[in-house]
Write a protein that binds this DNA or RNA. Structure first.
Lengths: 226, 226
DNA sequence: CGACGCGTTGAGCAGACTCAATCACAGTGG
DNA sequence: CCACTGTGATTGAGTCTGCTCAACGCGTCG
């Protein structure tokens, strides 16, 4: 049911909607934004390469990363129904996202009923993913959150066909910390400690997972499933 | 953009879909559940009276309240696309929710295109609401979270036509604490302190707001807007 | 090379937690 | 009617996790 979760598993079938939606390929250099909070909302995006971070902003300047997106995941869906985007989205590395103008997507839904239920399911999956992280952040201590985060990243790389045991973190410690509601020093210490306990091997952004079950038990996930 | 937020403002127009969807009124006594995580998903619900809490569950027994719902708000949308409900939903008092069988809702969307965009917007609003709380929980100290929570409750009562200055909290300190990722003693102390500072008057579950702007500035919300 | 951003590590502090006692209140049964 | 019980709320005292402040190392880039 719950599970680690992040992004939406269900990929939109691009080919099925090409007929109705004019898809634009948008490239972004590391640090460039897809959209800023407050800018007119006109499209959602499907990540095609690289990765992005989503940043929530408060009136008084507080801000927090609410998630990271990689290939096959949607961006901007939380702004549906609004006049303007609700958050900033920034490329973590040189990346590419496909722009799907939202009015066209809505029109396509009328012609392709499965698309409608796909979109709805994707939105619901996004909610479950957020809720799952709220649970993590609300109930796990710092080190356990970091363990859960690593497992999530690993699972997402695995889904894309990359190694779940050896990967490069695309985001800085500060971004990780912001997402996990911690300070970057705490994240750093947690990683060092996981290293000391031989759960992982970590050098800067390069991570090697040595003991998946160890990490899983820290993150409060049954080692049996998955 | 962000704002306090909770539930989805947009009420589904029941009359417009009565023709396609067989709506059942379901009453629940305090403590009774609408649904349990793992039970087959078949319907979403619209709260008609009373209030409910939504509870997320982890494999290892951890659990957390992820939100509260009152009149006009939807329940169960996060389970769309799944075979089974993702969370438990429990009535906080004697309440009533209208059951909308999901397959029928989907079918109705084909006949009433506005319903489709309404539903999508409602899901997106739910995501924004969750993100807004993630930001609160991730960036505000305990007392400020409690202040933000009170303002949110007040705003929701106001929207229903009740007083925003004097209301009864329907949930226990433990439920509030769970939602705010705190311990119930901390919530209790925070409320007492807000009382000491004359921002509120609180006796058990009865709350009187004495200084809205004071609370707003604590919660990091501009006092100008709204 | 020097500057800067990022990451790591240490020492001390403080906010939130834990444990525990007490109080208020509703429900129950003698 | 009141003692008894159980749950929820409040408050206190002491502890500890994660934060703050600060120094330092590494790597990149101008």
């Amino acid at each position: 049911m719950a599970q680690p979760a992040s992004g939406n598993g269900l990929g939109i079938d691009i080919e099925a909607i090409r007929e109705y939606v004019q898809v634009q390929r948008r490239k972004h250099l590391a640090g460039q934004s897809i959209c800023h909070a407050g800018q007119p909302f006109h499209a959602i995006y499907l990540v095609h390469a690289g990765s992005y971070k989503i940043c929530e902003l408060a009136d008084d300047g507080r801000e927090q990363i609410s998630g990271f997106r990689m290939r096959g995941e949607l961006i901007g869906v939380e702004s549906i129904g609004l006049k303007a985007y609700a958050s900033d989205v920034v490329a973590l590395e040189n990346s590419e996202a496909w722009e799907l103008p939202y009015p066209a997507v809505l029109r396509a839904c009328l012609h392709v009923p499965e698309l409608q239920s796909h979109l709805t399911s994707a939105l619901a999956a996004e909610i479950r993913c957020d809720r799952s992280w709220m649970l993590m952040l609300g109930t796990l201590a710092a080190e356990r959150r970091v363990a859960a985060f690593l497992l999530d990243v690993a699972a997402r790389y695995a889904r894309l066909g990359y190694s779940a045991k050896h990967f490069i973190l695309r985001m800085s410690r500060i971004d990780m910390a912001s997402f996990l509601a911690l300070k970057h020093e705490t994240v750093s210490r947690a990683l060092s400690h996981l290293h000391d306990m031989s759960y992982i091997d970590v050098q800067r952004r390069e991570v090697r997972v040595l003991d998946v079950d160890g990490l899983r038990s820290m993150a409060g996930m049954s080692t049996a499933l998955n």
